[in-house]
Design a binder for these strands. Structure first.
Lengths: 346, 346
DNA sequence: CTGAAAGCGCTTACAG
DNA sequence: CTGAAAGCGCTTACAG
């Protein structure tokens, strides 16, 4: 692990010139630069990041906070890996590194984030799984650290950058499809924690029902963990109702797995005896039978959108990405399956 | 973002004393320490990590390299989130942070790792998805950075710390079960990339067949992506053989999903017309019907094992974790299902 | 028990 | 075009 000092000695020039050559400053003799670059490659010199950080006041790194605790882990599965790949694609253009910061399940997310921010471990942050009231947004705003949220929140007065999936669009299209097939009693499976997407999705459902002049029945809203097991449990409760609904809309992809299983146990087939509409089209959804009606999006494109929108609020890159403060609803495309093909009799 | 200087001014004492008080040195007056701690909390002071790093020569952070590219993403799903939670649990005891370092799909893993190491972004590394020959192991050894591998490799001469799943145990028990039920022609689904676990698993299969005096037939080894789709494809190929096997052993949990689907399409039921044994018992496996015979392990415990074994090779913690250089095969417990209940006729 | 000072490895005005 | 020097924010021997 050689430092700039030894590299300079090796070349018999000053560390200042070495630094300038390595950092691509124009005021360096071509021959000198060549020699420096060659020696650096040969000796495997890479600038110590802490030294740079301290001097420059930045880290050339962007953090992506996720939660590693059991609760959200169920949902996240490969969702984040796909998004991360897109984010990195954008950051790589500017030699920025992405650090994934997993908040331990037993630590308060705000406290964890505060620690990361105060330590100045990154120049900017991406946060995800936003809650209706989310202290992290106020915290980041106050710290003046550039950030973007994957998800909306009522915190921050909507004057912070965010990208969020089109939950209201999905809710509306799901209800439209089911109502068109004659369904009137439609159950909705929501997450049991107070993540904001649950509220937004529910609002979308309520609005859609109103459009169709269907009275909203709160007993048809069922909450459970965002996992296969949660979907199983929701379906179990649905089937146990005295006046059971004929359709179920789910807000998490994994829930559909449990729903199919529970229906199977009851001798029912999705799209035959009961209608199911899932959320995101995941690789798994493609292997459900009958095919699940769900909604398609590109995780990588979402990651690219997040990355570019984040750069737009980072001073050194704002000129290159002039979109300003992005508030974007990410569209999702309906993938018609057979799971809601059932037309209610009567 | 207040620094130690301003905190010291605020308290009217020297920065040295502030630092000592904050870092829990014994040679500080109790009353002084109390005042410092109080003021730090009040003003929200947290030491700038770059300053500390530079001075101390360490980062108080451990890196966990994963691959965010499409290929491995399929496999990883929630595997890593579970492991990470366990690792963090251990690191938290010593105020070490875990940084997940996702290697972009389009970057060479060794190059990426080299960059992270040279930048001195972390004090130690966890690498995963080891290949048979894995340059990262030699690289880390050469850089003298403490590390542990989740997975074995022929690189590094086996004198580096690793923990790996018990692939040979799984292979042997799977074959034993199938042979006991009369199967002689058993197909094996392996990953198509050259990740080392494929080789180890195959060796285990070969050994088990030999024990049972069954000739090894290379045409029964089928390689595909470590995804649902891969499992589908493998099963498709199996069914198309002119002398089809009667059983299939898979090395990735998600492959079972695709296998079930393909069998279903062929009008076959796992455990009835054809035997299937999966690998890790994932939340998903629990929702397959009929129940998949697979193998159980605790991701969190594996994470704890990795964390502790890593600390054992980090000089400041080696005394607390005296296990030395760990080479451990992680046991997996058979979870009998119905997917291999089929007894071959004839 | 506390303060003054050195120095970790860089980058960057400033002279020349 | 290059060198000498300052300084980023810390921690830690060293004096007292």
């Amino acid at each position: 692990m050689i430092g700039i000092k030894r590299l300079a000695e090796h070349l018999n020039i000053s560390i200042g010139t070495v630094s300038r050559a390595l950092n691509g400053r124009p005021d360096v003799n071509d021959e000198t630069r060549r020699r420096v670059l060659e020696a650096a490659a040969e000796l495997g010199y890479v600038a110590n990041q802490s030294g740079r950080n301290l001097r420059q006041g930045n880290t050339n790194a962007v953090g992506f906070m996720i939660e590693s605790g059991a609760d959200t882990a169920g949902n996240s599965d490969n969702f984040f890996l796909g998004v991360i790949d897109g984010v990195q694609h954008v950051l790589a253009r500017h030699d920025l590194d992405l650090l994934v910061l997993p908040c331990p399940g037993d630590e308060n997310p705000s406290q964890y984030l505060q620690r990361m921010v105060s330590r100045r471990a990154v120049d900017a942050m991406i946060i995800s799984a936003t809650h209706r009231v989310d202290a992290r947004i106020d915290l980041l705003t106050k710290a003046r650290l550039p950030f973007i949220a994957l998800g909306r929140s009522t915190s921050g007065g909507n004057v912070y950058p965010w990208i969020d999936l089109d939950f209201e669009g999905v809710a509306n299209r799901a209800i439209d499809r089911l109502v068109a097939k004659g369904h009137r009693r439609i159950a909705v499976g929501l997450p049991s924690n107070d993540i904001n997407l649950g509220f937004i999705f529910l609002d979308g459902i309520k609005g859609a029902l109103k459009r169709h002049k269907i009275r909203f029945d709160p007993s048809l809203i069922i909450r459970a963990a965002s996992t296969e097991q949660g979907g199983y449990q929701i379906t179990h409760e649905v089937l146990a109702m005295k006046d059971p609904p004929t359709a179920l809309v789910l807000v998490y992809e994994l829930m559909a797995i449990g729903a199919y299983r529970r229906l199977g146990e009851a001798g029912m087939t999705p799209g035959k005896d009961f209608a199911v509409i899932g959320f995101r089209e995941s690789p798994l959804a493609k292997f459900l039978q009958p095919a699940l009606t769900c909604f398609r999006m590109s995780l990588r494109d979402l990651g690219i959108g997040l990355g570019e929108s984040l750069l737009a609020v980072m001073p050194p890159y704002a000129d290159t990405y002039p979109q300003g403060l992005v508030n974007k609803i990410w569209p999702m495309e309906l993938v018609p399956g057979e799971s809601d093909a059932f037309t209610r009799k009567g």
